[in-house]
Amino acid sequence: MRPEAAALLWDAREAAKRVTEFVSGLDEIGYRSDALRRSAVERQLEIVGEALNSLRRVDAETADQIPELHRIVGLRNVLAHAYAVVDDGVVWVAASERIPELISRLDLLLGEETTHDSSS
C-alpha cells in the first residue's frame, strides 16, 4: 500500500467514526428532525467519499478492496453537488447501517498496513 493510501484510509475511517458518534442514540425520526446532526453527518460522509475517491486515484488496488466504493463516492457527489435532492432516508441508512461495515473494512486495511510496516 502506498503511504498516501494509508493517510486517505485513516481520514475516511476517522470521518466514518464521527458519523457513528453523531447518530448514536438516534432513530431515523430523531435524525430527520435534527438539522444540526443531519448537517454534521452529511459533512462527514462527504469527507469519507472524497478520501475514498482520492484513494481510487492514488492506489486503485487498495480502493478495489472497499465494497460499494462507487456508491460511497456517488453519495458524496450528491451531498456536495445536488444538495436540493438529498434523501434523508438514504443518508440515514448509509450512516446507521453501512458506515459501521465500512469502518470494519477500513480497520482491516489499516491493520494490514500496520502489520506490513512493522515487518519491514
Rank of each mutant, 00 (worst) to 15 (best):
H70I: 09
L79N: 05
A12T: 03
S104C: 08
H116Q: 07
L75Y: 09
I72D: 01
A15M: 09
A84Q: 12
E68R: 15
A16F: 08
I72R: 02
W10C: 06
V90G: 01
G30W: 08
G49A: 06
K17H: 10
R18L: 10
L75Q: 05
N77L: 14
R57T: 09
A80N: 06
W10G: 06
V85K: 13
A35P: 04
V93N: 10
R2Q: 06
Y83D: 04
I29C: 04
G25Y: 09
D117I: 11
R32F: 08
R32S: 06
E46N: 06
R13L: 13
E50K: 08
I72V: 15
W92I: 05
L9K: 07
L69W: 03
A60V: 09
A15S: 15
A6K: 08
L110M: 10
M1Q: 13
R32K: 14
R71T: 10
L9C: 04
I103G: 02
L26C: 03
L36N: 07
E21T: 15
V48I: 12
P100S: 08
A16T: 07
I66N: 00
D117G: 02
R56N: 03
R76M: 06
A63G: 11
V41K: 01
L52K: 02
L102Y: 07
D87H: 06
R2G: 05
S120K: 11
A84D: 13
L79A: 09
P67A: 13
E113V: 14
V19K: 03
E68I: 02
A82E: 12
L110V: 07
V19W: 01
N53P: 00
E14R: 12
G74E: 07
D27F: 03
L110I: 13
S120C: 09
T20L: 11
V73Y: 02
R43N: 09
E14T: 13
R43V: 13
L26M: 13
V85R: 06
I47S: 01
E101A: 14
D117N: 10
E4K: 14
A40F: 06
R98Y: 12
H116M: 06
L9I: 11
D87M: 07
A94Q: 15
V86M: 04
G25C: 07
T115V: 15
R2A: 10
V78Q: 04
E21W: 08
N53I: 01
A5D: 01
A94D: 02
F22K: 00
R98I: 11
D11P: 00
A6Q: 13
I72K: 02
N77P: 03
R76N: 07
I66M: 09
E97R: 15
N53H: 05
A7M: 15
E4N: 15
V93K: 14
L110E: 01
I99D: 00
L75I: 14
L108M: 07
E14A: 13
Y83C: 01
E4A: 14
A15K: 02
E46P: 00
D87Y: 08
I66R: 03
P3D: 15
E68Q: 12
E61K: 12
S54M: 05
V41L: 03
E28W: 03
S119T: 14
L79G: 04
A60F: 05
P67Y: 12
M1C: 04
R57K: 14
A84N: 10
A40D: 07
G49Y: 02
D11Q: 09
V41E: 00
A15T: 09
S24V: 01
V93I: 12
Y31Q: 04
